[in-house]
Design a protein around this nucleic acid. Sequence first.
DNA 1: CGCCAATGTGTACGGATGTTCTTATCGCAT
DNA 2: ATGCGATAAGAACATCCGTACACATTGGCG
Lengths: 221, 221
Amino acid sequence: MCTDVLIACTLAHMARSPQSPQSPDDPGSEPQGARRARRFDPERGARILDAALDVLAEVGVAGTTHRLVAARADVPLGSVTYHFSSLADLQAQAFARYVELQSAQFGQLLAGVETTERLAEVLTGFVHGGPARRRSARLGFELHLAALRDPALRALTQAWTDHSRSALARFTSPDNAARLDALLEGMIMHALLATVEEARATTRAAIARTLDEAPATKKGR
Amino acid sequence: MCTDVLIACTLAHMARSPQSPQSPDDPGSEPQGARRARRFDPERGARILDAALDVLAEVGVAGTTHRLVAARADVPLGSVTYHFSSLADLQAQAFARYVELQSAQFGQLLAGVETTERLAEVLTGFVHGGPARRRSARLGFELHLAALRDPALRALTQAWTDHSRSALARFTSPDNAARLDALLEGMIMHALLATVEEARATTRAAIARTLDEAPATKKGR
DNA sequence: CGCCAATGTGTACGGATGTTCTTATCGCAT
DNA sequence: ATGCGATAAGAACATCCGTACACATTGGCG
C-alpha cells in the first residue's frame, strides 16, 4: 500500500539534485561521493512542520513517517530527526501549530459578524467548506483521534474547544455555545463523510434553530 | 513504542503451549519439531473479527497489525492471513461487524422509550457512558476517520448514520433527528476528550432543548 | 582571520510488518 | 475406510520504518 506516495517521495528526492545551482567547480563530472550542496536554511523547522501538516492531512497519523515529511519539505531525512527529537514530538508540534492557526482563523471568521442571522450564514459556510476547509477538518479529526489515545495531546484539543466555545459565546449563553460547538463538530464530520451532500438550507436551519435558544430559566419542558 | 502490547503478544503466544491437552504420546520428550496440535475450530473467522475489534479499540487503526490480532484471538499468524485476504479486508469486516452490533444495541436502547423526557435521560446516559461505551465510541470514531480516508468504508458510516437517524426520528422530525444525531456525535467526542467531565445535567439539558423543536412550519424565527 | 558550535547530509542498523509458502492435519462426502 | 479439499500452523522474505551516527559545511564570534 501507499506505493504512489512512496514513488512521489522517491521522485521528489531525485528531482532535487538537477535544479540546484551547481558550485563553480562542475560537480557533474565527479559522480562519486557527490554530496549535495549544503543549504543555508533558517526556519527549516517551521517548514518541516508545515510539510508534516500536509502529510498528516493526506495520509493520517497512521501513515505519517519521517521520510514522507522529509520528502514533502524537500529536506534530507536526517534533517527531520535533527530538528525533532522523535516522530511523536514532530506530530505534537505540528498539531500545536495547527491549533494555533485554526483558532486564529476561526476567530477572524467570526470577527466581523454581528447578528445571529449572519452568524448562521457564516457557520453554514464553515460546515460546507471548500477543499481547504476539508483539509482542516481532516486534520482536526486526526488530532481528536490522536488525542483520544495520547493524553499529552489533550491540552491541544482542550484549547481548541475552549477557544471555539468562547468565540461562539459572544452570540449565546456559554452552555448554548458548547451545544452549538458540539453540533458543528458533528455536522462537519457528517458533511465530510456523507455520500450525498446535505442541503445547505438544512444545515443552516439546524444552526439557526440551535442559535435562538429559549432561555426557559425555570419552567423548562 | 507499543512495547507493552508486544510483550503481551509474545506472552500470549508462549502461554498457549503448556495448557493444551497433550496427545497420547508424550510430546514433551521431543522438543524438536514440536508442532502445536491442530485445533478444530469453526467460526474462527468470527473470533478473529472480535479480536480485531478489541485491538482496534485499544491501539487504533494505526497500530492494528496481523500479529496483534492473532495474539488476541489466540491463533497463529498464518490463520489471520488465511481467513482474510488483507489487513484492510480484516479491518473492513471488523468494522462491518461493529456497525451491525452497534446498530442493534442502539435500537434496543431506544426500544422501550416512549416519552421524550425518558429519551433525553437515556441519551444522556449514552453520552456519559461506562467503559464499554467508551470502547464503542472509540471504535466509532476510529471507523469515521478510517472512512474519511477510505471511500470503501463510507457505506458503513452511512448505514450507521442512517440507522441512528431513523431510530431517533421516532421522536422528532427527520431533520431534527439528523440535528440531534450530529449533536450527540459531537458531545460524545467532547465527553471522551474532556479533561474534566461535563456535568450530566448540562448535557441532559442540551439534549432536551434540541429535542423539543419549535416546528415553525412556515413562520420560523 | 580562525575557531567552533550549530546545522546540514548521507548512510547504517535493528526491528516490526504484510504477505507468501510449505507442510501437517483432520472433517467429511463418497 | 479412504481420499481430498479445506484449514491450521509455523517459518521465511522482502520492505519499510525510527533512530543513531559519522562526517561535511558554514555562520558568527573572538
